[in-house]
Design a protein around this nucleic acid. Structure first.
Lengths: 148, 148
DNA sequence: AACATGAGTTCGATTTTCGAACGGAGGTGG
DNA sequence: CCACCTCCGTTCGAAAATCGAACTCATGTT
């Protein structure tokens, strides 16, 4: 298998990873969820080559994860915003953040805190079963091919 | 910023991504959660260069995500198993799978189904608030720096 | 006119990543 | 004892990704 064949595997991980499974792409998505929208802001925050930013943003737009909207004319300028498909990546980013918080935070604790607007509390994300609402762990899950 | 500086950023996404944010690493982790443990099985399932498998497995062991255990002597052979830190990546993988299921499945539906052993039902993963147990969406969350 | 801003593109040099072939330690069959 | 097989890697040269710096382009500001 090669990089570009990944997307056509009959596996949802492979297809997702083909779209977003790249260091810089994930860092850009993190910034999107933090409200960053403009090319130069992405570049300044990441401190990497502009050509990589341009390439990754283009891919994300092609994938339908980001939308490129004009926010002014004369000169026309665009901003990058998450589409619904992009917003649906929120659990992925939250899961990654939480794993990092637990396993890489230093004595000062996690760098960022998350507050649930609805209930007003700081929280950590918990993955639950859509059927019984109980929290899930790896050992609770049985996997089988569809149609079996 | 460069690739290898990613891990020292004060950001949990950056630190996590430095450890696992690579296409092949994520594919290997997928296989780990499906029960694959041996070098040649990883290689056969992924169909990529053995050097990549070797490199990624080594990194994951160094990171403490996998453990390299001998399963026989003469000749000594090892298998790769998820540590607790590795098992803690389950929500990340589930979130990625679910996003792929929703956005890339064809008319035949998702390639794999997941059953919750405790309740016996097929399910999809739902991310919830640890404080109030309600499902979370991106717009429900407010982020702020720690210590504010 | 000179300078600033925002959003890229281009370029050559450096790093990574890749596939294919090889190695090696030990079994198995004849 | 010799050939072959299995499992687990390593080595190496070619191909690709990444890098920083400079350049472009359209406009607005001093």
């Amino acid at each position: 298998m090669k990089w570009n064949e990944l997307g056509s595997e009959p596996c949802s991980v492979a297809r997702s990873v083909a779209a977003i499974g790249d260091r810089w792409t994930l860092m850009i998505l993190r910034d999107c969820f933090l409200g960053v929208r403009r090319f130069d802001d992405f570049q300044a925050r990441l401190g990497i080559s502009r050509s990589i930013i341009a390439d990754r943003l283009k891919r994300l737009v092609d994938e339908g994860v980001l939308r490129r909207d004009a926010y002014q004319d004369r000169p026309v300028r665009h901003e990058y915003r998450l589409t619904d498909k992009g917003l649906a990546l929120h659990p992925v980013i939250m899961a990654i953040v939480h794993w990092g918080d637990v396993h890489y935070a230093d004595e000062t604790g996690p760098p960022l805190l998350h507050r649930h607007k609805a209930c007003g509390c700081d929280f950590v994300p918990v993955m639950t079963c859509s059927a019984c609402n109980d929290p899930l762990t790896a050992r609770d899950v049985e996997v089988r091919p569809a149609g079996a």
